[in-house]
Every structure is written in structure tokens, then in C-alpha cells.
Computed example of a mutant assay.
Amino acid sequence: MTRSTVLLPLSLAALLAASPALAQTATGGDWSFEIGTGTDNRSKNASKSGNDGYAFGSATWESGDGLFYAGPAFQTIQSGGSNLEAELVAGYQPEAFGYQFDFSLAYKNRLDADPGYDAETVELTADISRSIGPARAGLQLQYAPQAAGSTESFTWVEGEVGWAFSDRIDASVAVGRREQDNGPDYTGWNAGVTLAMTDAIALDLRYYDTSAHADGEQYEDALVAKVAYAF
């Protein structure tokens, strides 16, 4: 049995396991959508688009009480012969003791990848954050038992601090560490500003860098601009 025939059923089973809770809160739920483009597709501070521009989009259903969400997404990439990564994600985002939590499971597939390329992965993510006035801080923990491509399992830990200068202007700095099997371990960081140009359109300008320049162009530093339209 191949890994592809194992990952997809396991991912779907985990998503379906949450369906009773989702169904209980489905009444009054809403859909939201986002599309956008950027000068480079950065994930964990490294490029997924060959340091070229990319497009992305998502459709997200959220329960009436705001606790549960689920939906598909896509982003253009350049990896293993694939130019498009599709994603299905489901999550639970409670609030307790003044902290916001977000626990999610994502299944990702790099479509039309070269034969023999490992195109699928499942990622487990836990986020915790807290805001006090204009200041906020967050911590993200992520694990994949088998990543796409030649990388096997990996862990990602990232801390972020931010400051809302106004309802329209927000700045943040984040530092993360990726440990992976059959791939370079590295530290990455980014700093930037997000400007809400309207209630629906946001512009993000951010500088990225990593400690793994010697491991390829995708790990080199870059100034990235991104615009997103939410509706």
C-alpha cells in the first residue's frame, strides 16, 4: 500500500470525525471567500514558488458560534513538476482565559506532480494567541508525519509579536524554527506591515530571511508584497 492510499483516507476520517460537532453548530453558519496574489509564495519563510509570483484563494465555512471552520483552498507553486497545491482544512478555535486557540488539520495535494514525486501531506497545527490593547503575541506549533517532496516528517515552532497602530495598520515580527528529516533544519524570520486599504482589500509588505541560504534559492531573503481581497 502506497502512502497516497493511506494519507487520504486518514485525513478524510479525521475530518469526518469532527462532522457531528460541526453539524450541531451548522445553523447560522456563514461562508467567506478570499483571493489574492503576491510576488513570492512564502511558507515558513522559504519560497514555494521558485521566488516568483503566485496566486491563492480559499472558501471557508464558519459555524454560527465561530468555533468551527472548514473549507478548500489553493495556491500556485513550483515544486516537483506541480504548479498548483490544493488543500482541505478543518479546525476548532475556542477562546479561554483570555487566550485564543486554533487547532486544525489540513490535507494538501500538489496536483499533476512528476511521477514518483511525493505529492501529498497532512499537517497538524496548533495556534495560541493573546491580545492586550493594540499589542498581541502568538505561538504556532505544527507537525507533519510525512511532508510533500523528499522531506519526511517535520516540526515547526514559531513565535510572533504584533502591534495594531490603528484599525487599518498592523505590524508584526515572527521567528520560527523548522526541524525536518531528509531536509535542512533552519531558523527563519519575517517582519512587515499590513495595510487594510478598504474593509475588503488588504496589502501586506514583508521581509523574509532564513539561516539556510546555502541550501538553495528558496531559502534566500526576499521582500514580498501581497494583496488579498476578502468577501
Rank of each mutant, 00 (worst) to 15 (best):
Q24D: 14
T25R: 12
T25C: 10
A26Y: 11
A26G: 09
T27W: 05
G28S: 14
G28W: 04
G28A: 13
D30R: 15
D30N: 14
W31T: 11
E34N: 14
I35E: 06
G36R: 01
T39R: 00
R42F: 02
S43N: 07
A46V: 03
A46E: 05
S47K: 00
S49C: 08
G50H: 06
G50F: 00
N51K: 04
D52L: 03
Y54V: 02
Y54Q: 03
Y54R: 01
A55T: 08
F56D: 03
G57C: 07
A59S: 11
A59M: 13
T60F: 04
W61G: 07
W61S: 05
E62Y: 02
G66A: 13
F68D: 08
P72T: 12
Q75S: 12
T76R: 00
Q78D: 14
G81W: 00
S82Q: 05
S82C: 06
N83F: 00
E87Q: 15
E87P: 02
E87F: 10
L88E: 08
V89H: 03
A90L: 12
G91W: 01
Y92E: 06
Y92H: 08
Q93E: 08
Q93G: 11
Q93V: 02
P94G: 02
P94N: 02
E95Q: 11
A96R: 12
A96L: 11
A96H: 11
G98R: 03
G98W: 04
G98I: 08
Y99C: 00
Q100G: 14
F101I: 09
F101Q: 07
D102K: 09
D102S: 10
D102W: 04
L105G: 13
A106Q: 10
A106H: 08
A106D: 09
N109W: 01
D112I: 07
D112W: 10
D114P: 11
P115Y: 09
Y117H: 13
A119D: 15
A119I: 08
E120D: 15
E123D: 07
